[in-house]
């Protein structure tokens, strides 16, 4: 007993140290991140993308849904020069040349560039909603599981196993069939009606979100749990507990800040997965409702004609690549900056 009381004060000091060290840790991380050029480029690209999505109406030169059927698949001259396989109609080929469109027009004569600009809204929303949902569900789940330990932990982790094995794609397809079909005749009621309305208002994105939410949180939950388990036994936590600090406070004030780094890294690095999931859903016809543009939908439509009009798939794919590239490098940069195991490597 005597030893415990003796130890407590030193631990308090340690906590203070840990906290002040924590602040400098974030500062250090920021310094490290700033030195990483590629991570910064990533951050700038993401920022530009956000600006593009927010100010889409100002940036897009044309209305994204305005069709000019006579100029279907029209392509500007410079695009023909990069894709030698495309031959202009005045040279005996099949491509209508028109410089009215910066990157060309799609099969209904709509401006590709404007659609890419508007399409960034869907991709970014998917990215942020995916990351947010996975963190909001995964972190509390993992914290509780890891902190409480024992049977609760075991039970919660087995539930994660179950969710891993659960066929999420099946669930999404069935959800979409159910809600989109029961919109019918305006006679749906209650939650069905509400969800259908949200789906309609969001251009069909709500179920993509639900799908991503359902499948994405387990990884974060596992990670958080592992980190919590490791942190739980640390001396300063034991000390805080012995001083009568309540469980929520311990979790919130002492454990969470210490494990946030790896969580942020993982959340950032998983974002590209959500973006490509949207593209996959578009490929199987479960993406956003037309005419709302999304990069995934544009890519899968363009891919069908990729031989004839490569620009229609390549440009949105390029946009997708840039954003995924940005998130990847930002994530890697964050990892190098934040991950404690990587510290001291320089």
């Amino acid at each position: 007993m005597a030893t415990t009381t003796q130890q407590a004060p030193t631990n308090v000091v340690q906590i203070h140290k840990a906290q002040s060290k924590g602040e400098s840790l974030w500062y250090d991380a920021w310094k490290r991140l700033r030195r990483n050029r590629f991570a910064l480029i990533g951050a700038v690209i993401i920022l530009l993308n956000v600006i593009m999505a927010v100010f889409a109406p100002q940036i897009a030169p044309q209305d994204f849904r305005k069709q000019d059927l006579l100029l279907n698949n029209a392509t500007p001259r410079w695009v023909l020069n990069i894709f030698p396989s495309m031959v202009a109609s005045d040279e005996g080929g099949y491509v209508t040349v028109s410089n009215k469109f910066i990157l060309g027009a799609d099969n209904l004569g709509r401006d590709l560039f404007s659609r890419i600009v508007y399409g960034s809204r869907v991709s970014l929303l998917v990215a942020f909603v995916g990351a947010t949902v996975s963190v909001l569900i995964g972190v509390p789940f993992g914290l509780l599981s890891g902190y409480l330990g024992g049977r609760v932990d075991n039970g919660m982790m087995r539930f994660v196993d179950l969710m891993y094995a659960f066929p999420a794609l099946l669930f999404i397809i069935l959800l979409m069939s159910f809600f989109r079909a029961s919109f019918v005749g305006q006679n749906a009621t209650g939650i069905t009606k509400t969800l259908s309305d949200i789906d309609a208002a969001s251009g069909g994105m709500i179920f993509i979100f639900i799908g991503i939410g359902l499948t994405s949180w387990m990884r974060i939950a596992r990670l958080t749990r592992g980190q919590t388990l490791a942190t739980r036994e640390a001396e300063y936590i034991t000390a805080a507990r012995s001083m009568g600090t309540t469980t929520p406070t311990i979790i919130y004030q002492h454990i969470l800040p210490n494990i946030l780094g790896p969580i942020i890294v993982t959340a950032t690095l998983t974002i590209p997965v959500y973006i490509s999931f949207e593209a996959f859903l578009s490929f199987i016809g479960l993406g956003v409702n037309p005419p709302t543009p999304s990069w995934g939908a544009m890519i899968s439509e363009g891919a069908a004609n990729i031989r004839s009009f490569p620009n229609q798939a390549v440009f949105p794919a390029l946009a997708l690549f840039l954003v995924m590239f940005a998130f990847n490098f930002l994530g890697d940069g964050l990892r190098d900056a934040l991950d404690p195991r990587m510290r001291g490597v320089d």
Partner: peptide, 29 residues
Amino acid sequence: DYSSMGVAILGVSVPTIVLAPILQWIFGV
């Protein structure tokens, strides 16, 4: 380092929907 990671990220960000027909086009046709 950056170009290796660039190639790797290229892999993960070019959707199969685009990559596959391009492969078919180049190597098949």
